[in-house]
Amino acid sequence: MTTYMWALFAREVKRFQKIWFDTVATPIVSTVLYLAIFSVVAAGRTVAGADYTAFVYTGLLGMMMVNSSFSNPAFALILSKNVGTIVDIQLAPIAPWKVGIAYAMAAFTRGLFTVVIAALITIWFIPGIALMHVLVFVAAMFITGLEFGMLGVIIGLLIKNFESFTLVMTFIMQPMIFLAGIFYPLSSLPAPWDYLSLFNPLHHNINLIRYGMIGYADASPLLSFAVMLSISAILFIVMNRIAVRSLKQ
């Protein structure tokens, strides 16, 4: 990263640190609550040969990375458009794609903060869990953070107010999250839903994260990896176009 990009990235990290209770503590609390309930209710149960609590645990970590990395840039950009501070970015000599990547990197950083802290707090619910494929897990988390960070940048640049942001969360993000296999394996779905779920891009992120952590995969990890890279490339192109258009009027 150049000095220009790094400064913008650092500014965004500082911004979410300043409101850490909203940005970091809140998702951690909700994840801890989820796991506390699942570990009690589903203790000893298995799904497709995997411990159900561990299955949900990995899905929730992935969901946390998705939510944090998506909402961080979207929220920051909508707010800055509404209060006028977007002009700081418009005036700065930073190419639009670099602005987008700086925001997406900050988004990943916020996701990393929340995931690491939540994982450390909640790992006591799943005794004996260990990272099976460390590199796959790290790569999956990194790509997921960047991917949904870029999506957050796109949404943040496109929409004008927080009411529209709520609509995006309700009608796009929530269905994607609930149909991504976070709480259940695809094999438990009747046809054609199990097949159709493969077209949900988020399913592949959760699938690869879960494979990296507990070695369980609903679909081929290689397929998921390829889908994630392809979606990231498409999002990068779209983000750049929208940033070029949005940062100049």
Partner: peptide
Amino acid sequence: YNAGMYGV
């Protein structure tokens, strides 16, 4: 941060 965004 502003100085940084201008390459200082």
